[in-house]
Amino acid sequence: CHSECLGNCSQPDDPTKCVACRNFYLDGRCVETCPPPYYHFQDWRCVNFSFCQDLHHKCKNSRRQGCHQYVIHNNKCIPECPSGYTMNSSNLLCTPCLGPCPKVCHLLEGEKTIDSVTSAQELRGCTVINGSLIINIRGGNNLAAELEANLGLIEEISGYLKIRRSYALVSLSFFRKLRLIRGETLEIGNYSFYALDNQNLRQLWDWSKHNLTITQGKLFFHYNPKLCLSEIHKMEEVSGTKGRQERNDIALKTNGDQASCENELLKFSYIRTSFDKILLRWEPYWPPDFRDLLGFMLFYKEAPYQNVTEFDGQDACGSNSWTVVDIDPPLRSNDPKSQNHPGWLMRGLKPWTQYAIFVKTLVTFSDERRTYGAKSDIIYVQTDATNPSVPLDPISVSNSSSQIILKWKPPSDPNGNITHYLVFWERQAEDSELFELDYCLKGLKLPSRTWSPPFESEDSQKHNQSEYEDSAGECCSCPKTDSQILKELEESSFRKTFEDYLHNVVFVPRKT
């Protein structure tokens, strides 16, 4: 048989008469490798580009789960590009990614509803959504962080984005990388972005840091009482949809009607710091009717980097990364020049730590249904340095008659930039024990000054392991946590139920 035959053949030295091919099969003959313009397919066939392209389009058009959109890589027609490569849609070739590779997620039936953290986790790592997304989240724990972890990498949506009755959302900033909504599939009414009845939605994105392009379709905003109209108009300008909307697409009466839409800028007039305090004062603000001013709200939190936005980490279910302080308005003076500047002394802060701070007014709604208010920009203030805590785990070892090696770990709280350490030492008198000992005694162990690591005695271990207080009263049991108490109650309830079950099964009433 021919060298490319495997198993047997019907005619000697003829690659077209093989029972099976050793390498690849091409047009009725066995070959060692697939010549151009053919590609290896499933490690035994040679196919042309049209064959591989037909497989790709067949799966793409069917949208069946589990099928493969075949691509070409290293002269092979394979189910998908290997790690580190992405497909070129024009020629199906796998090309190296520039940075992290995109991950295209194809949605069944063309859309997916995100109504819980669990459903959001199914899209973790996706960068391109081939379909439409509907966000409908009523509640949950730590929602802002969970949504950002699972949806934060999405850069492109081919269909539309719909935010509907998501009472738990305060902001859409968890879509931190969303840059493009194509609108290839539109919501009824030709809408590519749809926001309806979101009672706590206050911000779409921080438009000073976020760009969003909507290729096709219109915007729809109705019944978002805490979303200011200025935020919607800003989205029109940034996304390129200005002029597409009709009169009733953006409701003037049901958007922002319960919001404090600040239209003035508060400026800080005085800032002073110490290692654990920050004193702030800002310019006074009074609405047209000074009785509408209820006070100020001061927001602050630790910020290692200057990239904080107002609604980071917030949701309507209680999660809030900001510390909020309510401040009463100052006494009002008739003389504008003698107006008191409101302020606040922030206490209990960490030394040498940068804080993000902003302040906003708290006002009631005027009778004319106009909203007044003022808010400052987010500023960054760093507390002063102070003395560091003591170095940890000092170790001293003498390696000769004239040297001592000293080692330690950095302090747990540096409280500033540590530039150097101060080492103090003092000579001590020799131990009298060394002169009084009889060095001729056998088995004498000389006193040693070398360091030995501390260890816990058996008594201390027994005390720590004991669940009861000892007789001397030195140790006591740790208080039980809520989960331990709940577990004990469940076990007790189970024992009672099981005992009742045994009584009912074992003891049967005697027939009379």
Results as ranks from 00 to 15, higher is better:
103 K>S: 11
104 V>P: 04
105 C>R: 01
106 H>R: 05
106 H>K: 04
106 H>W: 03
106 H>V: 13
107 L>V: 09
108 L>R: 12
108 L>C: 03
109 E>A: 09
111 E>V: 10
112 K>N: 02
113 T>I: 06
115 D>Q: 08
116 S>A: 04
117 V>M: 14
118 T>N: 15
119 S>Q: 03
119 S>Y: 11
119 S>H: 15
119 S>W: 03
121 Q>S: 06
122 E>F: 03
122 E>I: 03
123 L>A: 03
124 R>H: 15
126 C>E: 00
126 C>P: 01
126 C>R: 00
126 C>S: 01
126 C>A: 01
127 T>D: 04
128 V>A: 06
130 N>W: 03
131 G>L: 00
131 G>C: 01
132 S>M: 01
133 L>S: 00
133 L>A: 02
133 L>C: 02
133 L>V: 11
135 I>V: 05
138 R>E: 04
139 G>P: 01
139 G>N: 09
141 N>E: 13
145 A>L: 13
147 L>P: 01
149 A>S: 04
149 A>Q: 13
150 N>A: 07
150 N>I: 08
152 G>T: 02
154 I>C: 03
154 I>E: 00
155 E>N: 08
155 E>I: 11
155 E>K: 08
156 E>L: 05
156 E>R: 02
156 E>W: 06
156 E>G: 03
157 I>V: 14
159 G>T: 01
159 G>E: 01
160 Y>A: 15
161 L>E: 00
161 L>S: 00
161 L>C: 05
162 K>M: 08
163 I>F: 08
163 I>C: 06
165 R>I: 14
166 S>C: 11
166 S>A: 13
166 S>V: 11
167 Y>I: 14
167 Y>C: 13
168 A>K: 02
168 A>S: 01
169 L>S: 07
171 S>P: 00
172 L>T: 12
173 S>T: 11
178 L>R: 00
178 L>K: 00
179 R>Y: 10
179 R>P: 00
179 R>T: 11
179 R>F: 09
180 L>H: 08
183 G>C: 03
183 G>A: 05
183 G>P: 02
184 E>R: 07
185 T>R: 11
185 T>M: 08
185 T>S: 12
185 T>C: 03
185 T>V: 15
186 L>W: 06
186 L>Q: 05
186 L>T: 05
186 L>S: 08
187 E>I: 10
187 E>A: 04
188 I>E: 14
188 I>V: 11
188 I>P: 04
189 G>K: 02
189 G>S: 08
190 N>A: 14
191 Y>T: 10
191 Y>D: 01
192 S>A: 03
193 F>Y: 04
193 F>E: 00
194 Y>N: 13
194 Y>R: 11
195 A>Q: 02
196 L>G: 06
196 L>V: 14
198 N>A: 02
198 N>K: 00
199 Q>W: 14
199 Q>E: 14
199 Q>R: 12
201 L>F: 10
202 R>Q: 03
202 R>K: 14
203 Q>M: 11
203 Q>V: 06
203 Q>I: 07
204 L>I: 10
206 D>S: 07
206 D>E: 12
206 D>A: 14
206 D>M: 05
207 W>C: 03
208 S>Q: 12
208 S>M: 06
209 K>L: 08
209 K>I: 15
212 L>R: 00
212 L>E: 00
212 L>Q: 05
215 T>P: 00
215 T>C: 09
217 G>Q: 02
218 K>S: 01
218 K>Q: 04
219 L>H: 03
219 L>T: 03
219 L>S: 05
221 F>S: 05
224 N>Q: 11
226 K>R: 10
226 K>V: 15
227 L>T: 06
227 L>R: 00
228 C>N: 02
228 C>A: 03
229 L>Y: 13
229 L>I: 01
231 E>S: 12
233 H>C: 14
234 K>I: 07
236 E>S: 08
237 E>Q: 12
237 E>D: 15
237 E>P: 01
239 S>N: 02
240 G>R: 12
240 G>E: 05
241 T>H: 10
242 K>D: 14
242 K>T: 05
244 R>Q: 07
244 R>I: 06
245 Q>V: 10
245 Q>I: 09
246 E>S: 08
246 E>D: 11
246 E>C: 06
246 E>T: 09
247 R>K: 09
248 N>F: 15
250 I>E: 14
250 I>S: 06
250 I>K: 04
251 A>W: 14
252 L>F: 14
252 L>M: 10
252 L>H: 10
253 K>Q: 13
253 K>E: 12
254 T>S: 08
255 N>L: 06
255 N>K: 04
256 G>W: 02
257 D>P: 03
257 D>I: 05
257 D>G: 02
257 D>L: 07
258 Q>A: 15
258 Q>Y: 11
258 Q>P: 07
260 S>N: 02
260 S>H: 07
260 S>W: 03
260 S>K: 04
262 E>L: 02
262 E>R: 07
266 L>Q: 02
266 L>S: 00
266 L>C: 02
266 L>F: 06
267 K>H: 08
267 K>M: 09
267 K>F: 09
268 F>T: 01
269 S>R: 11
269 S>V: 11
271 I>S: 03
272 R>F: 15
273 T>G: 03
273 T>M: 10
273 T>K: 14
273 T>W: 15
273 T>S: 14
274 S>F: 13
274 S>D: 14
274 S>C: 09
278 I>K: 01
278 I>N: 00
279 L>F: 07
280 L>K: 00
280 L>M: 13
281 R>A: 07
282 W>A: 01
283 E>W: 05
283 E>G: 15
283 E>S: 07
284 P>S: 03
284 P>Q: 09
286 W>L: 11
286 W>Y: 06
286 W>A: 13
286 W>G: 12
286 W>R: 08
288 P>F: 12
288 P>Y: 01
288 P>E: 12
289 D>T: 04
289 D>R: 08
291 R>V: 10
291 R>F: 06
292 D>N: 11
292 D>T: 06
292 D>C: 06
293 L>M: 10
293 L>C: 09
293 L>F: 09
294 L>D: 12
295 G>T: 05
295 G>N: 11
296 F>Q: 10
296 F>N: 05
297 M>P: 00
297 M>W: 14
298 L>W: 01
298 L>D: 00
299 F>C: 03
301 K>Q: 05
301 K>D: 05
301 K>M: 12
302 E>V: 04
302 E>T: 11
302 E>F: 04
302 E>L: 08
303 A>P: 01
305 Y>K: 02
305 Y>E: 04
306 Q>S: 13
307 N>T: 07
307 N>Q: 01
307 N>A: 14
307 N>I: 15
309 T>S: 15
309 T>H: 10
311 F>Q: 11
312 D>S: 07
313 G>A: 09
313 G>Y: 07
314 Q>L: 13
316 A>M: 04
317 C>V: 07
318 G>S: 15
319 S>G: 08
319 S>K: 08
320 N>A: 09
320 N>M: 07
320 N>W: 15
320 N>K: 06
321 S>P: 03
321 S>G: 09
321 S>T: 13
321 S>H: 12
322 W>M: 04
322 W>H: 04
324 V>R: 13
326 D>N: 15
328 D>P: 13
330 P>F: 12
330 P>T: 06
331 L>D: 13
332 R>K: 08
333 S>M: 08
334 N>C: 09
335 D>R: 11
335 D>Y: 15
336 P>K: 05
336 P>I: 04
338 S>K: 12
339 Q>S: 10
340 N>A: 07
340 N>Q: 14
341 H>A: 10
341 H>C: 15
342 P>D: 06
342 P>Q: 05
343 G>L: 08
345 L>A: 02
345 L>P: 05
346 M>S: 03
347 R>D: 14
347 R>I: 07
348 G>T: 13
349 L>I: 05
351 P>S: 09
351 P>E: 04
352 W>K: 15
353 T>R: 05
354 Q>Y: 10
355 Y>L: 01
355 Y>T: 00
358 F>W: 04
358 F>M: 05
360 K>I: 13
360 K>T: 03
361 T>V: 05
361 T>S: 12
363 V>L: 07
364 T>L: 01
366 S>H: 15
366 S>P: 02
369 R>E: 06
369 R>Y: 14
369 R>M: 11
370 R>W: 13
370 R>P: 13
370 R>H: 03
370 R>K: 10
371 T>W: 13
372 Y>S: 08
373 G>Y: 03
376 S>R: 00
376 S>M: 01
377 D>G: 05
378 I>E: 01
378 I>Y: 02
380 Y>E: 01
381 V>F: 01
382 Q>M: 13
382 Q>E: 09
383 T>V: 04
383 T>W: 00
383 T>E: 00
384 D>P: 08
387 N>H: 14
387 N>S: 05
388 P>T: 14
388 P>W: 07
390 V>P: 15
391 P>H: 03
392 L>K: 08
393 D>Q: 09
394 P>R: 06
396 S>K: 09
398 S>N: 15
399 N>F: 13
399 N>W: 10
399 N>C: 03
401 S>A: 13
401 S>E: 12
401 S>G: 13
407 K>H: 03
408 W>K: 00
409 K>E: 14
409 K>W: 14
409 K>Q: 06
410 P>V: 06
410 P>E: 13
